[in-house]
Design a protein around this nucleic acid. Sequence first.
DNA 1: CGCACATTTGACGAGAATCAACTGCAGTGG
DNA 2: CCACTGCAGTTGATTCTCGTCAAATGTGCG
Lengths: 239, 239
Amino acid sequence: MSRDSLDLEGVLRDAKPSLHEAELLERCFAHTLTAEAGRELQVAGSPLSRPKMILSGWVGLARFLDDGRRQFMDLHIAGDFTAFRLRSDAHAQAYAICLTPVQYVEVAEILHGVNAQPGLYPGLLAKMRASEEEQRARLFDHILRVGRMLAHERLAHFALELYRRHERVGLATAQSFPMPLTQEVLGDVLGLSTVHINRTLQQLRREGLLKTANGRWQIPNIEALRAVAAETREPGSIS
Amino acid sequence: MSRDSLDLEGVLRDAKPSLHEAELLERCFAHTLTAEAGRELQVAGSPLSRPKMILSGWVGLARFLDDGRRQFMDLHIAGDFTAFRLRSDAHAQAYAICLTPVQYVEVAEILHGVNAQPGLYPGLLAKMRASEEEQRARLFDHILRVGRMLAHERLAHFALELYRRHERVGLATAQSFPMPLTQEVLGDVLGLSTVHINRTLQQLRREGLLKTANGRWQIPNIEALRAVAAETREPGSIS
DNA sequence: CGCACATTTGACGAGAATCAACTGCAGTGG
DNA sequence: CCACTGCAGTTGATTCTCGTCAAATGTGCG
């Protein structure tokens, strides 16, 4: 497993798994699945039946317009749950597309277990609830980015989000984190063209706000980058 | 109560209220509260303790940038729950601002009741769960609009969303629905400037796609407007 | 009537998209 | 070993959508 994969011990560090959960997890992690880049883990409009947790790789949640324009709603990295909703009758609002090779485990048994025996897996269930809430917060951030920020602000804000998320699961080192996305995908995340992503990245590099090398992004000065992402501090100050 | 207010009987039509709920609702609706335009029903970063249901008027969920730029994440109209999350420990991700005078009722007792006696108000709880899920779908729509659509597409798509929502609560008549928002607010919803909103509205009117009069928007030809909002049909085809 | 506020209009400029070509690079096969 | 291929990244020229600024017009209301 590469340096970009998840530290399994750390995933549920705060979840205080019960004995049952510990067993279940062991069983899950023994059956690591793999999906190549480009594969869809969920299709918009389909029911969401098989929740997955990502061990390594990136997944993007996308919607499309008639003429092929694409917009990513959210990205999922190691430690994130994907292709899932806690509501059992929920349908997918978007396509979940593997942006890199992805290693994941199916955790469908957990939800089924919940339906069958409520409270059997409180730790994991709590994690998934928290995951839904965190995604909601990210969606808000994303709307603000795409709706009201300039290109360099969007990139700065986005880089900071990714840094924080990788830091949280132990995948950030030396102020840097993995960045396997092409500039085309980056454009479809931030609502910009590939060319403009390229030029804006150059600008940030020129200003010393971002270093890119070996498929990683490094943020030499976090406060400086935070100043570029012109958001007010209220919502971020919670977590 | 004006013609833009909610038909109370209709709100919980599908919710099959229990006897307890019927009593509770009667008690709630007896205490209709009012907030003037501009008042904040929730502040970003604060805990969300007092869920409300809107009877009439519009509420906007906004976030701000340092220099005053504002972006609305979502709008709430009659029949919508606002200033609430089902997770009891959730904090507000945005400001909830009254965009018009708003009539609402507090339904805090329902959540407290759930904590105290689970399953006591299944109908209302189900409504609130569904409301959360619908908002999530709207957030996805909004990201697509603001991230990848042109100005006239955003307006068309937005008008269609509002028409559908008003239709659902019985507030749409003759292909029209109330539109009390200023063009400035409209701009902050759709990520456009006031001036550009104005010009884009004129364009849609000129093309016969939208009629505006008496604080209402009318959509003469829904299919034609839908063709302007260039979205693919997958996600919308669910509901 | 006059005030505040929303809408409208025009002129101009800025940010970003588009188009097209070119570079660099890893993988492939002759 | 090296041309060949495909793809991501880069660059320049040009166009276009949209923002900004400023002023004018309209509208509801005390």
